[in-house]
Design a protein around this nucleic acid. Structure first.
Lengths: 180, 180
DNA sequence: GTCTATATACAGATAGAC
DNA sequence: GTCTATCTGTATATAGAC
């Protein structure tokens, strides 16, 4: 927990790479081992099962997600703007982790789904004091969900609103007018 | 295309049931056959491969999605409100189909991803004349994406903003004030 | 800590009876 | 049009050498 072994972390990174690029279906132990540059046996030394790999990436998301929200809450540009900006993907470690877990959830992993719901609840609680009422809070949460969803889809090849920085700025301004 | 065989349609329904309840990973040919109440051989008479099953559900989504949007565009309550209401899940045939395809896309199916992007483009074009500017259009699209995303996750067990009808009404009013 | 080799299981798909 | 039986490939996981 405190100082995770380097090799373990890099295997976890490789797992995320494969899930993001090709989807959970393609993330076999063989494929992950190849991506991590180790043999299957080497992979299984660090993660005794595929389930262990999934659990580890889910824990990683939860801890990174709470840390991210602490930054958002204290951002100088305001929590709402910071939250919305954090919702578009910049391929940060946290972005990659949450996309991975979202895909596992969509694939039917109940543990991943639960972890996502809990994280979303933390975000909602954090933002509530920064919005004028419940409706405004829902607006912010849903736009953020939409940004995430589109970006999550687009990585392994897909849609996306393709918001450039100006468009995102305008959207944030609009949401702040409506919600803050 | 014009008058699809009943048995074929009910197999497709069963496929959606399994994907929605347990995810694409659990939607094996065996599981689908069981859900459809036929043997594996019977299933394979209608759909010669798993790929054929996926293609069929994707085509189903595209045709149903265009039909849905025609209704939205001519709704008496206005296109934006109708669109937002249509974005929350009521377990309609179309809802079930789009959730299924979303999950296939998240699973790494590129054909599913492309079909979703094309459908989203159709929606965007349809709504553009009903919004005051591009930013407003993006707001509407993203809230809709967020509603879909949450609902899509929640079926196989997950999150969801749990908007009741009053809350949805308030949200629609807020978005219309901001975007129409 | 990392490897090769292998056991076990199961998914997708075929063949052919009814 | 639906069935049973079966082949083949591939995925997870174990055993044990280095």
């Amino acid at each position: 927990m405190s100082r995770p072994p380097r090799a373990r972390e890099s295997v976890l990174d490789a797992y995320e790479d494969v899930v993001i690029a090709d989807g959970p279906a393609a993330a076999t132990m063989d494929a992950v081992a190849r991506a991590a540059g180790v043999s299957k046996g080497g992979l299984l030394y660090h993660f005794a099962s595929k389930d262990a790999l999934q659990s580890a990436v889910i824990e990683r998301m939860s801890s990174r997600g709470v840390a991210e929200m602490a930054d958002v809450a204290t951002s100088p540009v305001g929590a709402i703007a910071a939250f919305m900006r954090s919702s578009i993907m910049h391929n940060t470690p946290f972005d990659r982790t949450i996309v991975t877990v979202s895909r596992l959830a969509q694939n039917g992993d109940a543990v991943a789904s639960d972890a996502l719901r809990r994280l979303r609840d933390v975000w909602e609680e954090t933002l509530r004091p920064h919005t004028r009422d419940e409706t405004a809070l829902q607006l912010v949460m849903l736009v953020s969900d939409g940004l995430y969803f589109n970006n999550a889809l687009s990585t392994g090849s897909v849609p996306g609103p393709d918001l450039d920085d100006d468009a995102l700025g305008a959207l944030i301004a609009l949401v702040e007018r409506s919600a803050v």
